[in-house]
Structure formats: structure tokens, C-alpha cells
């Protein structure tokens, strides 16, 4: 699974309240949530992000609440992957579960600049900065998590395993 897009840089401890402010937690439609992605820190983000774009952040990305609305907002705003030095654990689980690729690559933050064209190879464990011609390696996720991600999340993954058909 390869993801291509421009880099959006954010710092350390980007919390779930800036990713999706609490006042929008009564929304349940992913498209509505997407309109408020990253609103707490960049009110323009949801309008300017393009499909496949990649967030590159520092430590502890997604710290704070268990709201699955946060990774849902990012995914449906078009974010193709989040690359960070480290993730808060609930966000990490939620992201995998809803099919938003998460990559732990501590070197990326220093190597990549805002707007660089990136390519992430999830299985190969390679992050390429195409603008700079730099290649960074990371440890790929365990295969069962990669399988969940390539299915689009835990639910489509389980459905394909269990042979459940889409309800009308």
C-alpha cells in the first residue's frame, strides 16, 4: 500500500481537541466531521488539504481523548497517512481501526519540510521525500495491522473474514 501526497507539518503532542474540537462531538457523519479537521490549530486545513496528503508530526500525536471522531475527521478530510515520532495509544488503535495509516518514523520530522511531496510504502517500510530525494526507513506495522489498513479498517476487515454482506 503506497500513499502519495504533500507534507503537512505539526509539532509535538498534537491532541485530539485540536484535531477535532469537543464542540463537534455531537456530529456522527464523517463528511461533517471532516470539515473541522485540525480546526483547533489550523482553521484552513480542512479546505486546503488534498486527498493523499500526509501529516508529519512530532511526539505523542493524538494524545488526549478516546474520540474516534478525530482520526475519522482526518481520514475523511483526505489525509492519506500520519507519520509521527510517536503516537498516543488510543489514537493509534482508533486510526488503525478506521483505516487511517499511521507510521512511526522518528527521523521524518527533521528531514521533511512543509509541502514536500512524499510517498509512504507501508509494507516496505520506506518513506520517500520526492522533493528532496531522501529515503527514510521505518519498521512496518505487524502484518495483521497492515491487513486491517489495506481492507480500509477493522470493520471491512472483519466483514471480509466473516463473509458478512453489506446491509441495505
Amino acid at each position: 500500500m503506497k500513499i502519495r501526497g504533500r507534507a503537512w507539518k505539526f509539532g509535538d503532542s498534537i491532541d485530539t481537541d485540536v484535531i477535532l474540537p469537543g464542540k463537534y462531538l455531537t456530529l456522527t457523519e464523517p463528511k461533517e466531521l471532516a470539515q473541522h479537521a485540525m480546526e483547533g490549530i489550523d482553521s484552513e486545513f480542512s479546505r486546503r488539504v488534498q486527498p493523499g496528503d500526509i501529516i508529519v508530526a512530532g511526539r505523542n500525536f493524538g494524545c488526549g481523548s478516546s474520540r474516534e471522531h478525530a482520526p475519522l475527521a482526518l481520514k475523511h478530510a483526505g489525509v492519506g497517512a500520519v507519520v509521527a515520532k510517536s503516537f498516543a495509544r488510543i489514537f493509534f488503535r482508533n486510526a488503525v481501526n478506521i483505516g487511517l495509516p499511521v507510521v512511526i518514523c522518528p527521523e521524518a520530522y527533521e528531514a521533511v519540510e512543509q509541502g514536500d511531496q512524499l510517498e509512504v510504502d507501508l509494507e516496505g517500510g520506506v518513506l520517500r521525500d520526492l522533493t528532496k530525494g531522501v529515503e527514510l526507513k521505518f519498521t512496518p506495522l505487524p502484518s495483521f495491522l497492515l491487513e486491517i489498513l489495506s481492507s480500509g479498517g477493522l470493520i471491512p476487515y472483519l466483514k471480509s473474514k466473516l463473509g458478512v454482506r453489506d446491509a441495505l
Binding site: S66, R67, I90, R93, N97, G153, L154, I155, L158
Partner: peptide, 27 residues
């Protein structure tokens, strides 16, 4: 397990309590 990050509060009584998101909770 609770679909709220502060579920860990219950550890004060010696339970193993942790917060999860909605998909985990669905499972």
C-alpha cells in the same frame, strides 16, 4: 473498558481499566 479515555479512573480500586475508541468498543 470504556469508550472514554478517563476510564482509567477505576484503577484506583485495583481494576485494570482502560479507554478505547468506538470501533474497539463495538467489537
Amino acid at each position: 473498558v470504556g469508550a472514554d479515555s478517563h476510564t482509567c479512573t477505576a484503577g484506583a480500586l485495583g481494576a485494570f481499566a482502560t479507554g478505547v475508541g468506538s470501533t474497539d468498543m463495538a467489537a
